[in-house]
């Protein structure tokens, strides 16, 4: 078991390394001149050459990658071309907002999906099942940013219950939470659509198993049979999809922050793009990809936690 975890850990580290390399080479081998971006079109070629030299852009790309990687593992992602402050600082400033949004959305997504999925499975073939399936099809087809706009029209423009966007900062936690309700809801409704569907089919599969009959025959209540015996056995496919959805959650968060003008990483990356701030974009894309990879690593560990049969294999 320890061996198993160590092996997973090694694979995880290698994947992270591969990702950082892929991003670095993609963004540095492709044509584009940071010196031009920083100094502007009117700058002289001499000035640009001097700056390139100073930024180390004339060194071989492998060498630059290793230097960048060496810094990155110590939390140094270089200095932003456009903001003129360390990229790490920019990220640290905006991370809490993004984490809060993603975390809130995830909690709501999982809770909603499990309740809907279990409900649909226990009402298989009846009206409730159809309603959940319809919700799921619609949720998959609706872009989160459009749903956000509909929510804003309803709850901000028409009813005026919640703010249409912007973020008041963390000093007033209630106001901060209110600012996050609509964006988190939009993300969660869309994400839970797929997850509810998977939960439903996994539950239907598990409910046919003999051990569910055994549990019922020992006089356990239907609720206990569902939540304590059936759901844990359905968790492996559910957790797999949760892992896959983290990629959607990351991109969804980027999009939603732009819909609601929330000052998180998603906004930062777009500011960086419009400034052609390559070094910042590079750090952030690596960070986003690393989050996705980490989530999948955690899912791998979750399998071991869920299922003793997988633990037994070393």
């Amino acid at each position: 078991m320890t061996l198993l975890i160590l092996r997973r850990l090694l694979g995880f580290a290698l994947t992270l390394l591969a990702i950082s390399a892929a991003v670095f080479f993609l963004m540095n081998v492709l044509p584009g001149d940071p010196a031009m971006v920083i100094l502007g079109i009117e700058s002289t070629e001499d000035a640009r050459a001097a700056l390139r030299d100073q930024l180390g852009l004339n060194d071989p790309v492998i060498w630059r990658y290793l230097a960048w990687l060496g810094g990155a593992v110590q939390g140094d992602f270089g200095v932003s071309y456009s903001f003129k402050v360390p990229v790490a600082e920019l990220i640290a400033e905006r991370l809490p907002m993004t984490l809060a949004l993603a975390g809130l959305a995830t909690v709501v997504t999982v809770a909603l999906a499990l309740v809907l999925g279990v409900y649909a499975a226990t009402h298989h073939g009846r009206a409730g099942d159809w309603a959940v399936m319809a919700f799921s099809q619609l949720g998959i087809a609706i872009p989160a940013f459009w749903l956000s706009m509909l929510l804003v029209i309803l709850f901000a423009v028409t009813l005026r219950w919640l703010p249409p966007g912007g973020f008041p900062g963390w000093d007033d936690p209630i106001a901060a939470l209110r600012a996050l309700i609509l964006p988190a809801t939009a993300l969660a409704l869309v994400q839970s659509a797929v997850l509810a569907r998977v939960t439903r089919s996994a539950m239907l599969e598990v409910m046919r198993q003999t051990y569910i009959r055994t549990a019922t025959a020992t006089g356990l209540s239907p609720a206990r049979v569902m939540w304590r015996h059936a759901l844990p056995n359905a968790l492996v496919p559910i957790v797999t999809i949760i892992g896959m959805q983290v990629a959607n959650l990351v991109t969804g968060t980027i999009v939603i922050e732009n819909v609601f003008y929330l000052p998180g990483l998603g906004r930062l990356v777009f500011q960086a793009i419009s400034n052609r701030d390559l070094i910042t974009v590079q750090a952030m894309v690596t960070l986003f990809a690393a989050i996705v990879v980490t989530a999948n690593f955690l899912v791998d560990l979750a399998y071991l936690w869920i299922d003793p049969r997988l633990r037994a294999r070393t």
């Binding site: 198993q209 051990y211 009959r213 055994t214 025959a217 020992t218 056995n233 869920i306």
Partner: peptide, 26 residues
């Protein structure tokens, strides 16, 4: 259902056909 439930396991018990899948594996 509640009356049946208080009977199941306590008065009438049943052992099912497939012993290999009759126990919750987790």
């Amino acid at each position: 259902e509640t009356a049946l439930r208080s009977l199941r396991g306590q008065r009438i018990a049943m052992v099912f056909q497939e012993p290999l899948s009759a126990l919750n594996p987790l």
